[in-house]
Design a binder for these strands. Sequence first.
DNA 1: GCAAGGTC
Length: 914
Amino acid sequence: MSGGGRAINVLNVAEKPSVAKSVATLLSRGQGMRVREGRSRYNKIFEFDYGIRGQRCRMLVTSVTGHLMELEFEDRFRKWHSCDPADLYAAPVRKSVPQDKLDIKRTLEEEARRCQWLVLWLDCDREGENIAFEVIDTCTAANCNLTIKRARFSALIEREIHDSVQNLVEPNRWFADAVDARQEIDLRIGASFTRFQTMLLRDAFVIDSAADDRNLVLSYGPCQFPTLGFVVERFWEIQSHEPEEFWIINCSHKSEEGIATFNWTRGHLFDYTCAVIIYEMCVEEPPATVAGVRQQEKYKYPPHPLSTIELEKRASRYFRMSSEHTMKVAEELYQAGFISYPRTETDNFSARTDLHAIVQEQRGHPVWGSYAQRLLDPSSGLWRNPSNGGHDDKAHPPIHPTKFSGGERNWSQDHHRLYELVVRHFLACVSQPAVGAETTVEIDIAGEQFAASGRVIIAKNYLDVYRFESWGGSVIPTYVPGQQFIPTTLTLDSGVTRPPPLLSEADLLNCMDKAGIGTDATMHDHIKKLLDRFYATKDQNMRFSPTNLGEALVMGYDDMGYKLWKPNLRSMMEFDMRAVSEGAKTKAEVLETCLQQMKACFLDARSNKQKLMEAMAVFFERAARTARDEQHVVGEFVRLCGLCHQSNMVLKRNRDGNFMVGCLGFPQCRNVVWLPGSVSEAVVTANICNSCSPGPIYMIQFKFRRLEIPPIFSVDHLGCIGGCDDTLQQLTEICGTGSRMSARGGGPTPLSSSAQRSNSRQQACSSCRQLGHSSTDCPSVISGTRNSRSRRADQQDGGLSVSCDTCGASCPMRTANTANNKGRKFYSCQSEGCNFFVWEDSLQNGGGRHGANGGASNSRARSNSLGGRGRGGRGGNNATNGTFVSATGDPVTGRCYVCGDPSHFANACPNRFT
DNA sequence: GCAAGGTC
């Protein structure tokens, strides 16, 4: 091993103590290795003799603990009031070793003085390269004659480590530069915005967080803020959700073999008339014909090897552990040698990993040991080489067990759980997928398609050990093509669309991962920061809601038109960092352009600080000395909340100046009545509404902006929000509301919310002079001229069809079979999820669509924001109560949806389509 | 008192 000539001293530095120990052990093969203390008690020094390409070496292997240095502003810029925060974009910064790392620095200096070579064993990623240069700077300051080399390795495996030390390379300056740029940008942006918004808002409002207001820091960071943005965005999405009623036909069939539930191929329809017509056709011609039976073998694959994010997501999902706690427990298991390094992006095992050896270790476990034995038995056929998740950080393998344990005495329940997850996940990864046999039966009732499916699990395979996942199986009776049967139940049911749930921790990690916010080692920190800063809370179900403070800050920047709370900024920076690390751009170039842009953004944000103040004023009271000129903060009493029955509903303005009546129980109670966007003034009067209950409900004197309401309405109106007031309802429909959600939606952020508001107000259609639509989507234009001509051109041989207004598919002509419309022809779209429907005679007449609602297939009438009346435009027809049950042969219940009479169905109603 | 990134 050791060659001739005089031995040189080689200082080897790893990123962390564990790597130093591994490298030393592997290189020395455990022979003749000495350990001695350095100045830092964590960072030992290992010594042994070794030969590098014929050169005899005395190897000294030690470590740092991550970054050795920190970037800071020079002293005179460190105090918050020492300078204008805008100056922080140019204030001099310097890198230095912080107090708690000085002992490591001294060790490096002392050892470097007696060495000739320095070999860097830092992790092989950009941060690792940057740390390498911190070590180089420290060591060369003590000994300028050092020869500097970099060891490149991707796993702590004997052959790999020997190879890398025999093939030393140069450190990569570009990689380190990319990190330098990132650090400087993060520091300047973070410090300037944090100081600015903290000093602006903390003393101006009474922020009732758990922290003392004086110590509250309203931080801004390029990772924490987009993380908050995800939470707020979902919250807004939920708030803006307007439940929409839909209709669905359900069919089931019971036979001796069991029951099959058939789902309507159309999914659901939002148009009630359309759904009822189809439903009634099915009811009147109920025999079902089996159109097809499909049998397929399906596989459920085991997960990819375990990365940090996956570990965090799964621990959150399976055990409700926070990502921060998961990482703490994982770190302890790692320190004790039970699992591999827990901070890894890699989800692919290197071909050199001895997977069988890892399984072998687990054979003795009382619970999963027998599964491990089966895996190793070639005759079981259970083994499968793990899939490749496609990520490799080139530094660490996927998380896997490194030492057998049947459970240690000092382990908490969470240590047990996490170790079990890591082991079971690993065993699952090297197992065959679960196999199932799926049967799909398609049936046809009066031209409508339904389908049912069942699954039988043939082989559980990995699911036997991965108890966290399941694969539902259900058996359905046997059907043969052409078979006919009478459905046991055939019902028309209603449902309402639901908003998405609040973000779970796993969802949030997913969002961050996709947008490139944070790293595997820091993502949980950013989430925790939201909680620590009182920007968000986590409920019992581990789901995140923004606090008033978090929402106000995001709202403030959103109102300025900035995407500072979106992940774009970080993505842009990440793109630039990559360019630097590839040598396409220089560090100086990126710093200059990025900081110039950010400074301009900062100055602009500061000149628009009023937006931030206004957003805060929506949620918080002004501090005493500034509250004098504020009004509408608390609001005037209108009624007791009919939802929570605990708090008062008060008249308020939102930050755009739009009026609303909201429950003071917010955020626990979210009851709110949004008022028409055309209201210019609103004052609660002493008049009490005598038709709405429970009372008292105080009436509000409104003034509307003349140009924003149709001429038939008066600008002055004494109104009630209890549901009795038709004028308010109509104006709300016509003008829209000032609801933040209707303004924000999912589209691009408006630069000015007032511009958005005026766009949402509707003008009269220039074609038919009606309100509620524009000439481009006027029903008379669509069905009367342009589209009916194009439809005529679409006739097909062997049967008439028209092209669908909505999806463009061909819609065949069909004949209605209902009592009132027997023999009448219509076209309805066959595409899944499409509910286009039109009567043939309405096309021939060239006129508009049917009746008030009939035929206008896609009109998804929005529910009125003035509560309590069901769907707009169909007063008196409360369809949600009417589940029409028409079990063939069984009694039929329900009532007519047109007039509400229980003695007949709509198909026999004399008032239908009149 | 501020960021995000390493790590103990």
